[in-house]
């Protein structure tokens, strides 16, 4: 007897309509990004044309060259800001993912005194938001002597309950039997965590990587970093764009430069999620 097809297919009509809707919405989603790209390529006079256009008539790279010139004449070289931001973003992301997987594994699969309370506190903490928290947090960071260091930028990310909660939710779907049999084979807890659990929740930690890198990369750090040579790229770009050249084009060029690395990280890592599709699904 032939089994029914694995997937129940949508009708051709349904597919067509949903694709059309998706495209319509997609155009709306991309509008600001397209506008930013166009603005970064527009010469100054085109900002005053009526009606405004979504493309540059005479595209030019002058906006980018202007930004480059200003950075070239600054006391602190551009590469310094880029290094600072990359260092904080990459270190913070790696630590957040490693600490997160370990913590989430324990919180979902181990049994220990205080587990239930801790799990509840984490969810409650996730719901407590607001810039109110910035004040006590700032005082604590200064007490720890972390002000003006990368630690001040990346430590709050390591405290984020979003990562640990997301990872925990995914790890609960990993079957216990699999972990038990690994234990019987004599695998240690760290090995089980990184060699069995982590590969099984790859979509989850890749998502956490994307989100964490992005939030660290966009972190301007201006409230905790004061020395010019330690400042981060977003702070440097906003300084230049707001004071150096007061032109819409340069602003758009700056925004675009800031967006490119998170886009690269997103595209590269998101592909990893999709490629795991072939052997997707946790199997007993």
């Amino acid at each position: 007897m032939k089994l029914k097809t694995k997937q129940l297919n949508r009708s051709l009509w349904g597919n067509g309509i949903s694709l059309f809707m998706l495209m319509l919405m997609g155009a709306f989603m991309l509008l600001p990004l397209v506008y930013t790209v166009a603005s970064s390529l527009k010469p100054t006079e085109e900002f005053y044309v009526f009606p405004p256009k979504l493309y540059a008539v005479n595209p030019t790279f002058n906006n980018f060259l202007d930004l480059w010139d200003i950075f070239a004449n600054m006391r602190v070289p551009l590469s310094r800001y880029i290094y600072n931001t990359l260092f904080a973003s990459i270190t913070g992301t790696v630590l957040a993912v490693v600490f997160g997987i370990m913590g989430a594994y324990v919180l979902s699969k181990h049994d220990f005194p205080g587990k239930a309370a801790l799990n509840r506190i984490i969810v409650v903490a996730l719901l407590y938001t607001g810039n109110i928290l910035a004040v006590p947090r700032y005082l604590i960071i200064s007490r720890l002597n972390w002000l003006d260091t990368s630690m001040a930028v990346l430590a709050p990310t390591l405290a984020s309950t979003m990562c640990i909660f997301l990872l925990r939710q995914f790890i609960t779907t990993v079957p216990n039997a699999m972990l038990e049999s690994a234990r019987i084979d004599g695998a240690g807890e760290f090995r089980i965590c990184f060699q069995m659990v982590a590969p099984n929740v790859k979509p989850a930690w890749i998502t956490v990587t994307i989100l964490t890198f992005q939030s660290l990369w966009n972190n301007n750090g201006s409230s905790v970093i004061f020395t010019e040579t330690k400042k981060l790229l977003p702070a440097a770009i906003s300084q230049v764009v707001s004071s150096g050249i007061s032109r819409a084009g340069a602003g758009a060029a700056g925004t675009l430069i800031m967006i490119i690395p998170p886009i690269l990280v997103f595209v590269i890592f998101q592909r990893q999620i999709i490629e795991t599709m072939a052997n997707s699904g946790v199997k007993e």
Partner: peptide, 19 residues
């Protein structure tokens, strides 16, 4: 279990729960 939780808990208590 506590050892594996420690790195996260350290930052969590200090920079989120305490504030």
């Amino acid at each position: 279990s506590y050892l594996m939780l420690l790195p996260f808990l350290f930052f969590f208590f200090l920079l989120l729960l305490l504030p």
